[in-house]
Design a protein around this nucleic acid. Structure first.
Lengths: 129, 129, 129, 129
DNA sequence: GTGGTCTAGACCACG
DNA sequence: GTGGTCTAGACCACA
């Protein structure tokens, strides 16, 4: 797990962290049951405050990606991550909408948009090599 | 132009407003050269602060969607909206990335994801009905 | 809204605060749409840190009791509080279980236990007088 | 005595253990004078730390449920478990209060709440089957 | 050692 | 003035 954050970005650090960990899961670098570093060690590794890590972990817990055991630490949800349900699809749609709207305005066609998505999907094709 | 904002959303009002106007353009309800309501009238129509409308307009101007003339008012850029360039594609990719990452985690396949995008694209197919 | 907390208690302050606000709702002192004090003012009123209030508010938001508007402040969910669903009943049962278990051990009969519950329910009978 | 603990729960292990043993007593599986496993054997049976079992035992002793003899081991209090006194009722009430408060907020009526309690009481009706 | 809680103080975006 | 974020540092319960 190499975690690289962009401290210049307006995206909150804890949010970036959430996505970096999701990336690890999508990449199969992190598998159900795997340990995650403790809030303290991860915080000091990245050079951020432990509360920031905590917030990221709690959001991931909230969404069912990880489990937090009081004294033992943090693990990827051994039962696997919750599947996409209707609620998630709605959320996804709502997030996708403005991106597509602007793309249409800028004359970026459906085919090209989808090709772009596929490019990103390919990033995850092989998983860890 | 019916503009509906979600005041409960965590998305800033001005940002929502920007996208609503982009939607109008994508829907062909707003065409190059068309007038937009003045800051004042739009603000009072929607019932929001002047500054909020102002911020939205300036962001749209900044991105080349509209022109703001001191006395004549606000119009959709008569030369049309700037096309998608590499810089935009990069931005789009960056925004798309986390959405795709989470979808993969949640086992939402590429096909389904793309189908979802197409569903949204269809919304704009006919333009205003 | 008079909010009294027990700083000696082992129950976290933010948790107590959550229940005090729920009490206000149960008592009909707080009705859907009502404003709640800002995190800062409530914190200084009670004499605790604003982060503690924040945590309480976010838990209430999470459970659908309140809405947090970025700049406008905090209100009781205008659509009313979410009804008890199966999930809640399960949680309630799980919380009730040990209480009943110990009561049985201590020879406190079902009738007396229920009478005790009724006593508490009566507290809320009239609402605010 | 089958003891099942939920290591994912936020409830401390020793607390869960206390309630499991109370459950045994409420179920009449454990009767006054009965032996309990030694700290060591119970800990290794369940796969938890010695200290954790110790803490649970001492809490039970503190409340008069069990007796701990240096060499003879641990037994359920031969004089029976202490009856519910006023102090216990106060504690019970305090624990019940927030559960009832939230139930009222969620529109779960008194009748249904009591029915739920009765359901739990029934679990103990027949004792061990 | 772990996470949970609380405090204190700071800066920022928003409206 | 509002909530959102981040930092820093402290104490506690648990195992």
């Amino acid at each position: 797990m190499f975690i690289k954050l962009d401290f210049e970005s307006s995206e909150p650090i804890y949010q970036q962290l959430v996505f970096r960990i999701m990336e690890g899961i999508a990449m199969k670098e992190l598998k159900p049951g795997d340990d995650l570093p403790s809030v303290r060690s991860l915080a000091s590794d990245i050079g951020i405050n432990l509360h920031t890590v905590n917030k990221a972990y709690h959001q991931l817990k909230q969404e069912g990606f990880i489990q937090i055991h009081r004294q033992k630490g943090v693990v990827i949800n051994p039962d696997g991550v919750p599947k996409a349900d209707e609620q998630y699809k709605e959320r996804l749609k709502k997030n996708l909408h403005p991106l597509i709207t602007e793309s249409i305005c800028r004359d970026l066609g459906e085919e090209e948009f989808i090709k772009l998505c596929q490019t990103i999907y390919e990033t995850y094709q092989g998983g860890r090599t």
